[in-house]
Design a protein around this nucleic acid. Sequence first.
DNA 1: AATTGATATATCGTTTTGATATATTGTAGA
DNA 2: TCTACAATATATCAAAACGATATATCAATT
Lengths: 179, 179
Amino acid sequence: MAKDRKIDMVILGLLSHEDLTGYDIKKRIDSHISFFWKGSFGSIYPALSGLQEQGMIVRRSCGSGSREKISYSITEDGRICLNEWLRDSNACNDLKYETLVKLFFGGAAGRETSIRNIDAFEKDIRRDLEVLKMYKENLEKDLSDDHIYFYLTVTFGIDTYEGYLKWCSKARKLLRNSL
Amino acid sequence: MAKDRKIDMVILGLLSHEDLTGYDIKKRIDSHISFFWKGSFGSIYPALSGLQEQGMIVRRSCGSGSREKISYSITEDGRICLNEWLRDSNACNDLKYETLVKLFFGGAAGRETSIRNIDAFEKDIRRDLEVLKMYKENLEKDLSDDHIYFYLTVTFGIDTYEGYLKWCSKARKLLRNSL
DNA sequence: AATTGATATATCGTTTTGATATATTGTAGA
DNA sequence: TCTACAATATATCAAAACGATATATCAATT
């Protein structure tokens, strides 16, 4: 049975494309999906053990030399489990904007503090937006069936980030101009 | 000293406006800030105990009758702690879009499944957007210094949600039209 | 009088984070 | 050559947060 562990589904998703080690999984998450989902070693390695016990994945030592290196493959059961989860359109989108919490309570520290916090947020967003735009450009060179799903998540990021930037300007203006 | 517990700051923020019980805190979070931050009883009650031990808040039994009811007030130390946190412009915005994870791995289930998932996402967003717009209308009737911070978080929500909706249309179109 | 739903506090198991420990391999510079 | 550093790789731990559940009271309805 599919558990409540969301990281399990991320791992199965990644393994549905290629065999990976725990470390590789972490790298894939960081490079490709970290702007809409994160994962740490502390969740990845226990999840891999759990998934193996459930028969969703199989491990194979692939140490080239003396080095222990453990690669995982998805099983047929794993594919079925992933598929079931994908077909269930219930999805929990859990957003935590510390920036907005600080803004919400901004009255306790004054408007200049809030403006500085918005500035810091904007700076982060601009930096991340550049990366996403680069991804988009590269993907548009070859928008095959394989890449279309990644492309859609990237455009999601770009659209929302550009929304953030517009809001930043408006918010600063309001904080400065309204008496 | 300020801990790593983010919920602590949310509680101090809420208590900086008015005295509240744990249950009230949960209600305030659900009604006012849940679209950018969530909190459960399982984090609120332990946090209240911790904050009290640190002297950031004080508890006062205010049972009207036999009913036990515990209200909390912020202390001067609590205000200082909140202020320090507000002034630190480092903020971790941690977003988890399960919808995007499903889309990213959508190739494993086919385009119709992805389109259904986008439809479900859009439906949720439209519903939540209506609520935010109502909040905005009400706030605009009296945009005093007290309400401006809430107003800004609400417009943030509206701007990003409208960005989501635009993306939904584009994404569906791409999934349907690109061969 | 009984039932329902809101109020209110609290705990428990599970998941996740973020940091750290440990050790190996590859590589760039002294 | 060697040596220091970064990257690779697995793993664990305490702390934090979630989500569900337990318990009980109060207010309003039936």
